[in-house]
Each structure stands twice: as structure tokens, then as C-alpha cells.
Design a protein around this nucleic acid. Structure first.
Length: 868
RNA sequence: GCCAGAGUGGCGGAAUUGGCAGACGCGCCGGAUUCAAAAUCCGGUCCUCGCAAGGGGGUGUGGGUUCAAUUCCCACCUCUGGCACCA
């Protein structure tokens, strides 16, 4: 079997690259990360630190915590940018373990998809081999990073034991009329040779390969996500632990607008053309109506008219324009008169019917009522074709009214209705509901809400996906495969041709089958499902990944979900996260789930960029973590990744920065190892505060301050960078303490007490670093004289009574400028403080001959003397 | 155009119920150690005037509120992301 060629990584320059500066000779007492990391990874595996028996009820006292990172596409190699996601997830997992939760932290592979198939075409390697190989590589990478998962729950979406249930979910939707096939104009990517969902088209380009997307009329499978638009929108409000940004993006995508749909009637045939408008208050100002070039009525309407040919020419010219030509804002409004008229129901006006390039078939009904007086686009159109402009709303303020009388733009603001029959004189906002009621009473139309969200197109004309479990039978029509016959297996022996149709269509054994219903001859659906279907439910499968009787066990799933913490990239803000919410709601409606939002709390991490650009092979700026781990260890990689910036923000990777993280770990290592004899010989005792010297007291205070800071940074803001910084500061305090008095001795009772405070300090550092750099923490924990297993130790609590220092330095300002400093007792009274300050030589000098207006005292911080 | 978010030393970034701007790290400069280097350790490092003591300026720009503004208010500029001929 051919080996998949290794991913090309630019070899580092050993002479100039700071990552490869010489530090290779390690003596016994050196920080030997290679052995340490291997050792503890094996230890966690053997003791099952991350293994969770979801059915086990013996831990009921412990609260559950489901920590989920977005499962990766097995692309082959993960770079340090991907690493961030898993490292953050691992910090949360390990922290929660120390906080006493039962933590479920699973992982799997989003393993279907185009790249594997494209590689297959290029290199003639079967996608399943390619994928399996990549999974193997990436799995070993994740293991080397020391990120902890319950590997017994691993899922792989391209395996039949997984996609069987993806197909089952399709059937559930099909049974409930939420999956359907229709002919529609759909997005087609010529380079990927497949259709795409709206969500996968970005500015007219294929999201994946940036090829220009064209439109094709094809019969395709859709999921009725549009039916869920309102609920997907409403329930965003319940997601209080999601970033506002993501919720806004979803709300924009759903794009709800309120208005009315109004029925205009064709004058000849009496056929009704409805149009949607958000401004029913302007209906009296309609002077023309526009149809989208794709509107199905056009062909019929223009048949036999004088202008038939030029109209059809116009339509086909517009249809053939590319996305940018057609939809960019600067594109000139163009249209052509159809020769037909419709009647405006509210006033009986005869309204010319046009075809216009700016009317979109995919929004509303594909027909727009033209109100040039109050819509800028209609205005431009009317100007160009000399159509009448009819004002029906005027500014309430008469001065403004004069100003706007002859201006070259539409009046789009609010105002008073005019020329609007019975509604004249009303404020337009007030008129809207009244006009809607009027339309409804007269059966001219109705109040209506329109959404931008379209149904989810899930068919793909490609091989490497889950087959859609449907057959087409001449006598029975479209027939779903019965549940018990799942999975519909993806055939292994297929030929990968360069471009074109799905290879499945050529596999006769696959295509030709019998109808499950009448047992007659039938043909299988040869399209596969969008991979976003696979990923829309994987978080459920983790709870019963080895169950071959059901997709998930409702009881277990209801116990462990919703996911307590979901972590992933913001690029999935709409796609994956919207689809998952939809599928969860559907399954919940079917009574299969007891919750209707899958992810309680969402964290989106920023990208790691290098040289100002996203890491990519083509740009050659990929930083491979393997080299870093080889030279410095994964704890260093982890520490730097966490330290470089707050994780929600994009961050610039700097190779030099790694060194700072490595230095810190070495410094910590040396400090602990240097005390090994003392750790072994000096008895562990309760700390006695009465024996504290000034330095000891300060050290003890700093320990507590640091615990507080780190705990809050993890729990509240996720600012791991400042958490790490504060631990670095504590280590400096520790170093100063041990080196104080020319090297501290721990001999008498005071000394033993001091040592126990020092031990407390180092053990605290090791504990609060454990979620960040678990390997070195485990090792140092043992060196401090403890039994192995730092993750069975509780997260330290701080003593809030010792956070305050006895003395504080305060800045003394005169008119807002710092002129002096005083060190005073922190609980000093204002009067005593004022007296102290007035004795300061420098202050006296500056105040000499000046009038003091007032003195502002901010306790423990600042004194500001205001003078004239 | 609309809606979010951001703008702080040479660099990554700290600090917002208004209270000493620049924590921590990188880099750089100086020193110790070394035959020399690497590694390590110590000190310095916002700009500017000054030998110094000390002074002046400084958080995108311009205003404002305040004893005090990176933080609050108004106007604007730039960048990033989302939506956009959406009726």
C-alpha cells in the first residue's frame, strides 16, 4: 500500500532560527522535558484520567461538565494555530477536573470531505486510506501535545458505524417532511464539481476554493431550516454565554424583516402577482412593478408580444452575469417593460410591469413594487426610464418639506401620509398596521414576515460523503431506505476521474438496486450529503459512540447535554453552529432530545497569524509544533500559546517568544529541584502565622493574591496570558525570598515554618500551573514530596483575610501630577494621612504660598491636593 | 451604506464601578560568568530637555465633562469581521 507523502514543511534553518539555539547538553538535574512528557502522558492514559463511563452513577455527587472542542478535519498535520484550540480545551478540562467535576472531553474526526477526494484524484490513493493515514498522524500529534481526551469515545464520521446514523437522521427529517427534493437554481462550484449551500458561498466565490460560483437549475435535496428561522432567531436570546458577535452574525444571516405581502393582479389574465414589502405605508405610491429576471411567469407573460425577443434577450443577458457584475452596489439599474400592466389593489391604478436586474428571485416573491418617491433604488430606476414619481409621505416639518420637494433622491424617512386615500394625514408608522389591516379586510394582501435564510441544500455531487439513503422506483417514486437496512454503504471500488459527476453514478452495483417497498427495479440516489450534516450531530454520538443499536441513548444524552463549554473557531459562526442548532431543535421536536440548544456556552478563539497572515502552506508561513516540541517540549509550546495573547483575540506568532516560556519553566524547575533535600528532610507542618517574619508574611500574601488572580482569570475572563504573568511574578517573589539574607537557612523553628511557607508557595505554583503545563507540574509535584497525580488534588482556595498588605505606597499628586510618594499603614485615617503628607518636604515646598482648595483621598491609592 | 469589535513603547500585550499608563514576556543596551561563545544571572529600557535633582509631553485625531480620562460623552480617521440592489 502506498504511503501518503509527508506534508511539506519548510525545514528550519539551524543556524539562524532561534528555536534551534544550542541547549542540548542536559545533565541529571536539568529539565528533561522529553522523558517527563512521555512519562506523564503514559501515566494519564494508564490511570484513565480522561476516561468517563457515562452510564456509571456511582459518581452522582460530582457535577458533570461536558467540554467540547470542534472536531478536526483530518488534513494531515496540525500547526500551532490549530493547537490553540486544543490547548484551550485542555486547560478548561484539566481545571474543571481539579475543581472536582466529572469532565467529559471527547474527540473525533470530521472525516468526510473534498480534500481527501481531490487528493485521491491527483494521487490515485483511496480517500479512506488517505484519511486513515492522516488521522493516525494527527492523533499522535494530539497525544504529544498532552491534550487529554477519552479516546474510547473517538468518532470518525466517514466510518459506516457513524454515517449509518447520519443517514438515520436524514430519514427522520424525511419522515417529517423536513427533507425534500426540489428543482431550483442552485450554486455550483465548477472547480469542486458540486453544488453548495448558500452558507458556503462568500461574495460569489466558493468558500473552499475561491472559484466563482455559477447558477444551475438542478433537482436537489434540501433541509427545511427556513421553517425554523424564527425559533433559531428567538432562541439566540437564551444563549447568554455565547459571544454577542456570533449571535449577531446568526441574526443577520437569518435576516428577519417585517412587512406585508400585497397582491397585484394582471390586467389581462387576472393572475395574481404578490410582492413583499417592508413599507406597506408606501403602497399608494407604486408607479411600476418589477420582476426578477428569473421569475417563472416571464416566459408566459411575454409570449406573442411585440417585444418578446428583446425581453427574453434581456433576461438571459442578466442571468448570465456573474455575481459581482450583477449584485455589486454600483451596478446600474436596468430593466425592460413587459408590455403588461397590473392593478394596484388599494387605488386601482394601472401599473406597468417591468423586468429589472435589481429584483432578486431568491428574496421574497421575486416581485417588487416600485415606489420611486420613497426608495432610492426605485428612484434611480424611475429616473432612468422616465417613470412617474408619486409622493405619498411628506416630512412633518414644513420647512423640511420645501427643501425635499425637488431633491434628487427618494425620501426614505418617516413622515405624514399624503395621496393615500383614507390614510392621509396619518403618521406613516401609525399607518403601517392600519394599512395592513385594511389589506387583510379587503383581501388585497396580508401582514407578512420574510426571512433571508433559505433552506439548506445538502446534496453534493461527490463521492466522499455519506450516501443519501433514498432510491427512485418507477412505480413507487422516491422511497426512503428502511432504518433496519442502514447503512447504505459507500462502495469502495470506484474510479476517480478528473472532473465531473460523482463517481457513484458509475458504480452499477451501487446504483442498481431493488425498491424496498415493491421489490422492483430501482436506482439509488448518487449524491452524498454535505459534510456539515455529519458535524451537525457528532456531539450527541460521543455519548454512545460504540452503540450499534441507536444513534444516541436519549437518557445518557439528556444527562450530559447540552455541552457545557464548546470551543472552536469563529469561522463556524454561521455554518456549523446554525446547522447544529437546527438539527438539535428537530430532534428535540421529535421527542428524541430533552433540550433544544446544543451548546450552553461558546468560546471562539482567535486565529494565530504569522507575518501578518493566516498560516497556510501556500504562503509558507506554517509553524509546525513538532519542531518546537522536539526542542523545547510541549509544555513550552502550550505555555507560549497561552501567554502570547488573550485567547479570544487574533495573535501574532513570534518564534522568539517561545524562548521566554522555556526560560520560565527552566527557572521554575531549578527553583524546585534546588530544594529537593529540604523537601525530603524538613517535616511538613501546619503553617504558623505567629512565626512569620515580614518577608514570610509578604510571601504568604502573594501566594493568596496569585491564587485569586489565576482563578478569576480562568473562570471569568479566560485571560490565560495574565494568569501566567501573575504566576511568573509569584516565582520572582519566591526567588527573592529564598535568596534573601544571603541564602535563607531553614534550621530553627522559624526556619522550618518559613520552609513550609516556601513549600506552600512552590506547591501552589505547580498546582495552578497544572492546567497550562501539566507534564512539568506532575513531575515537580512529586519532587515536592507528594504522591503522583496532581489532577486528583483540588484547586487551591485563597484566604481573603491576608490579601491586604499592612503598608501601602500612595502617590501624592498636586493638581493631578504625581509629586511625591508616601508609605503608610493601609488602614490609616484620612486626618492622619493628611498630617503625614503635609510633613513631606517636597510637598511643603510646592505648597508654599499656595491656597489649598481641597484634598481628595482615594484610600490605598492616591492623594490629590488641589491648589490655586 | 448598516451592525459588531479594535486602535497603547521597537514587538506581543497589561491596566477600564474614572485614581500612579506601559504588569508579564520578547528584543535591545550595560554588567557578571567564560580563553571565547552559547546558556545562565544581575541592572537598565515610553519619548524628550537636563551632568544631576527635576521638568515637559504621551494610550488613533479633534473637542467636552472632571480634582483626576487609556477608561465616560460628542464628532471624526484607520483597521478587522459580519450583512448588503434584501424590496
Amino acid at each position: 500500500m502506498k504511503q501518503f507523502p509527508p506534508v511539506d514543511i519548510i525545514p528550519p534553518d539551524y543556524n539562524t532560527n532561534p528555536l534551534f539555539l544550542n541547549n542540548s547538553d542536559m545533565s541529571d538535574n536539568e529539565y528533561n522535558f522529553r522523558d517527563i512528557e512521555k512519562k506523564w502522558q503514559n501515566y494519564w492514559r494508564d490511570c484513565g484520567l480522561f476516561r468517563v463511563d457515562a452510564n456509571d452513577t456511582s459518581h452522582e455527587a460530582k457535577e458533570k461538565f461536558y467540554c467540547l472542542v470542534m472536531f478536526p478535519y483530518p488534513s494531515g498535520t496540525l500547526h500551532v494555530g490549530h493547537g490553540r484550540n486544543y490547548i484551550i480545551g485542555d486547560v478548561v478540562t484539566r481545571y474543571k477536573i481539579m475543581k472536582g467535576y466529572r469532565v467529559l472531553s471527547p474527540i473525533g474526526w470530521d472525516a468526510f470531505g473534498l480534500p481527501a477526494e481531490n487528493a485521491a484524484i491527483q494521487k490515485q490513493i483511496h480517500p479512506s486510506i488517505h484519511t486513515k493515514d492522516n488521522i493516525r498522524k494527527m492523533k499522535s500529534q494530539l497525544e504529544r501535545w498532552g491534550v487529554g481526551y477519552d479516546w474510547d469515545r473517538e468518532v470518525t464520521s466517514c466510518k459506516p458505524d457513524y454515517y449509518k446514523w447520519t443517514q438515520w437522521i436524514f430519514l427522520k427529517l424525511f419522515e417529517n417532511k423536513l427533507a425534500y427534493k426540489k428543482k431550483a437554481s442552485v450554486n455550483w462550484c465548477p472547480s469542486c464539481s458540486t453544488v453548495l449551500a448558500n452558507e458556503q458561498v462568500v461574495e460569489g466565490l466558493c468558500e473552499r476554493c475561491d472559484t466563482e460560483v455559477t447558477q444551475r437549475d438542478l433537482e436537489q435535496w434540501f433541509f427545511r431550516i427556513a421553517n425554523y428561522a424564527q425559533r433559531l432567531l428567538d432562541d439566540l436570546e437564551t444563549l447568554d454565554k455565547w459571544p454577542e458577535k456570533v449571535k449577531t452574525m446568526q441574526a443577520n444571516w437569518i435576516g428577519r424583516s417585517e412587512g406585508a405581502s400585497i397582491d397585484f393582479t394582471l390586467q389581462e389574465s387576472k393572475e395574481v402577482i404578490s410582492c413583499f414589502t417592508t413599507r406597506p405605508d408606501t403602497v399608494y405610491g407604486v408607479t411600476f412593478m418589477s420582476l426578477a429576471p428569473e421569475h417563472p411567469l416571464i416566459t408566459e407573460l411575454v409570449k406573442g408580444t411585440d417585444n418578446e425577443e428583446s425581453i427574453l434577450q434581456f433576461v438571459s443577458r442578466i442571468k448570465n452575469q456573474n455575481f459581482v457584475e450583477r449584485t455589486s452596489e454600483g451596478t446600474e439599474k436596468e430593466g425592460i417593460f413587459t408590455g403588461r400592466y397590473v392593478t394596484n389593489p388599494v387605488n386601482g391604478e394601472k401599473v406597468p410591469l417591468w423586468v429589472a436586474n435589481y429584483a432578486l428571485m431568491e428574496y421574497g416573491t421575486g416581485a417588487v413594487m416600485g415606489v420611486p418617491a420613497h426608495d432610492q433604488r426605485d428612484f434611480a430606476f424611475a429616473r432612468k426610464y422616465d417613470l412617474p414619481v408619486m409622493r405619498v409621505i411628506e416630512p412633518s416639518d414644513s420647512e423640511k418639506r420645501q427643501q425635499t420637494e425637488k431633491v434628487d433622491e427618494a425620501y426614505v424617512e418617516d413622515g405624514i401620509q399624503v395621496n393615500s386615500g383614507q390614510f392621509d394625514g396619518m403618521h406613516n408608522r401609525e399607518a403601517i398596521p392600519k394599512i395592513i389591516r385594511f389589506l387583510e379586510e379587503k383581501r388585497y394582501g396580508k401582514g407578512s414576515i420574510n426571512y433571508r435564510l433559505r433552506d439548506w441544500l445538502i446534496s453534493r455531487q461527490r463521492y466522499w460523503g455519506a450516501p443519501i439513503p433514498i432510491v427512485y422506483c418507477e412505480s413507487c417514486g422516491t422511497v426512503p431506505i428502511p432504518e433496519e437496512e442502514l447503512p447504505v454503504l459507500l462502495p469502495e471500488n470506484v474510479e476517480f476521474k478528473k472532473k465531473g459527476q460523482s463517481p457513484l453514478a458509475d458504480v452499477e452495483e451501487f446504483v442498481n438496486t431493488t425498491c424496498p417497498s415493491c421489490k422492483g427495479m430501482a436506482k439509488r440516489e448518487t449524491d452524498t450529503m454535505d459534510t456539515f450534516v455529519d458535524s451537525s450531530w457528532y456531539y450527541l454520538r460521543y455519548l454512545s459512540s460504540n452503540d450499534d443499536t441507536q444513534a444516541f441513548d436519549p437518557e445518557v444524552v439528556n444527562k450530559w447535554l447540552p455541552v457545557d463549554q464548546y470551543i472552536g473557531g469563529v469561522e463556524h459562526a454561521i455554518l456549523h453552529l446554525l446547522y447544529s442548532r437546527f438539527i438539535t431543535k428537530v430532534l428535540s421536536d421529535l421527542g428524541l432530545l430533552g433540550f433544544n440548544e446544543p451548546f450552553k456556552s461558546l468560546f471562539t478563539q482567535g486565529m494565530i497569524v504569522k507575518d501578518g497572515a493566516k498560516m497556510s502552506k501556500s504562503k509558507g508561513n506554517v509553524v509546525n509544533p513538532d519542531f518546537i516540541i522536539e526542542k523545547y517540549g510541549t509544555d513550552t509550546q502550550r505555555l507560549y500559546t497561552l501567554f502570547m495573547a488573550p485567547p479570544q483575540r487574533d495573535a501574532e506568532w513570534n518564534d522568539r517568544g517561545i524562548i521566554g516560556a522555556f526560560r520560565f519553566l527552566n527557572k521554575l524547575w531549578k527553583n524546585v529541584v534546588a530544594l529537593q533535600t529540604e523537601f525530603n528532610n524538613i517535616p511538613r507542618r501546619e503553617i504558623t502565622h505567629d512565626l512569620f517574619s515580614k518577608e514570610t508574611k509578604e510571601l504568604f500574601r502573594q501566594i493568596n493574591i496569585t491564587i485569586k488572580k489565576v482563578t478569576e482569570d480562568i473562570e471569568e475572563s479566560w485571560h490565560f496570558n495574565t494568569a501566567v504573568a501573575s504566576i511568573m511574578e509569584l516565582l520572582t517573589v519566591v526567588t527573592n525570598f529564598t535568596e534573601g539574607q544571603g541564602g535563607r537557612k531553614f534550621e530553627d523553628e522559624n526556619g522550618i515554618n518559613d520552609f513550609n511557607v516556601l513549600r506552600h508557595a512552590l506547591e501552589t505554583i505547580v498546582k495552578i500551573l497544572a492546567p497550562f503545563v501539566p507534564h512539568i507540574s506532575e513531575e515537580l509535584w512529586v519532587i515536592c514530596g507528594n504522591e503522583p497525580g496532581i489532577f486528583s488534588v483540588s484547586w487551591p482556595l485563597y484566604n481573603k483575610d491576608v490579601l491586604e498588605a499592612e503598608q501601602v505606597e500612595m502617590a501624592v499628586q498636586i493638581n493631578g501630577k504625581v509629586r511625591s510618594r508616601v508609605t503608610v499603614e493601609s488602614e490609616i485615617s484620612e486626618d492622619v494621612l493628611k498630617m503625614r503628607i503635609m510633613k513631606e518636604e517636597r510637598i511643603c515646598e510646592l505648597l508654599d504660598g499656595k491656597e489649598v482648595l481641597k484634598i481628595i483621598i482615594i484610600p490605598k491609592k492616591i492623594v490629590n491636593i488641589v491648589i490655586k
